[in-house]
Each structure stands twice: as C-alpha cells, then as structure tokens.
Design a protein around this nucleic acid. Structure first.
Lengths: 114, 114
DNA sequence: CTTTCTTATTACGGAGCCGTAATTATTTTC
DNA sequence: GAAAATAATTACGGCTCCGTAATAAGAAAG
C-alpha cells in the first residue's frame, strides 16, 4: 500500500505531466494510455471486445488506438487461430521499454514530492 | 518524500487512467492538464507567455487551452491593468473542485497499489 | 509622435479522434 | 448448408488539436 495524500498526488501528477510534455516521446491520449497499460499489466489474452468492455468504450475506439499504437510499435495484432474472428493483442519490446521508462519517470518524480 | 517503485508507479498510473476514462468528467489532453496544474500549483501571476515558456510550447497552444478550459469553467482570464498587453490567468471554484477531486481519486488509487 | 518591440490572439490548412452505422469475415445454430 | 449471431474493421461527418504565419493592441524607445 502506498500512502499518497491528495495534495501530494496532485503534485506528482503535475510533475509527471510536465515531464511528459517536455519529453520527445509521443504522448498518447488518456484512452490510448489506459488501453496500453491494460495490455501490459493485465494478464492476456486481450481482444478488441474485451478491452472495449473493460474500458467501457466502443470497439472502433480500440481498433483506432491499436492502429496508432501499432504504428508506434507499442503493440502487435495476431489472429486467434482457434477462433479467427478474434484478434489477440500482443506486447512488443518497444512498448515494454516505453512503459518501463514511464514507470521510472513517475517513480523519480514521486521521490521529489515532499 | 514518497516512495514509489517503477512497477507501483505504472500500476497507479493505470488505475488513475482507467478511473479518468470511466469518469464522466471531461478528460483534458496532456498539455491542458499540465497547464491547469501549473496554474493551480505554481504561485501566480500566470501569463500566456510565462506558461508557454514553462511548458516549452508555442503561445497559441496556451491560448487555445485557455479557451477550452475557460468554457469548462476551470480558468478565467483578466487583463493586467499595469500592462494591458498581458493577460493574467486566474483560478476558479470549479477548477479547484475538479483538481481536488482528481487528487482524491489518485490518492485513493494509490492506497490500492500493493 | 512615430518607429520598434512585445503580448496575445486569430487565420488557415492539415491531422487525429469521436460516435454511429455499414461492411467483412468467421462461427454457431437450426 | 442456409440463416442468425458474433468479432473486428471501415466509412463518414463532425469536432478539436496542431504549427506556422499574419494580425491587433499596447508599451517603450528614439
């Protein structure tokens, strides 16, 4: 359990957002970030339908986010051979690195919060 | 000082993003959020030029963000009477409430991070 | 007081995301 | 095996954001 008072939380959020803005890395939309983190932190398999239900958004939102993040190299699609209607979304090395850096960045900023 | 390991940071970020997506509240872009937090957490006065320099973005970005967040009622513009070229950006009750809720939300999610 | 500088805004063409509805491909049901 | 159901994508019109360049208003310098 992490103890973080509301004021500290805002301060951390502020620093993290500023770092994101200054950073060269592409900054994803809130939805894209939520999707990416779900793919990487929740256990697979991940499908378009499952992600849409989990985030409570429509499926085209997921499809488009996967298009964008696929171009960035953060995720990869693969057909489910057992039911070829499904698309299984998979992690990539680049996506892992991106999120790893993000985690380190937030962690560092947390250390600066008084 | 807040201790938050990279893995915990990602988990917190995930939960906060998910909560934001589920929430009815309008979700701002990364830049808008960074601007809003700077206005509320850094000491005034805040000007378009100052914010642009602080975030390292062009001035139209600030102007547009202020337009959008002004419509949402989160910030207010006021002419600087001492130098009428300047616009002073001010906080509002609604903006305070929005950020207060955000702080509480993140704080609560932090408590759930193992 | 006219020129120059500074601050902020608007204009404009381009790009991305949104939600709804239509489309394609595959599986299940009868 | 034809019809219905399911999964994902594409199409479309609308809205917002972007960066650059032009504009408007005010202050400072000469």
């Amino acid at each position: 359990m992490v103890i973080l008072k509301p004021g500290q939380a805002l301060s951390l959020w502020h620093k993290a957002m500023l770092a994101q803005v200054h950073d060269d890395a592409p900054d994803l939309t809130t939805r894209q970030m939520a999707i990416l983190l779900t793919i990487y932190l929740d256990p697979p398999p991940h499908t378009v339908r499952g992600l849409a239900a989990h985030l409570n958004v429509t499926k085209p939102v997921i499809t488009r986010a996967l298009d964008t993040m696929g171009i960035l190299g953060f995720v990869r699609r693969r057909r489910d051979e057992r039911d070829r209607r499904n698309v299984l979304i998979q992690r990539t090395v680049q996506g892992s690195e991106y999120l790893e850096n993000l985690g380190i960045l937030i962690s560092q900023e947390a250390g600066k919060v008084t």
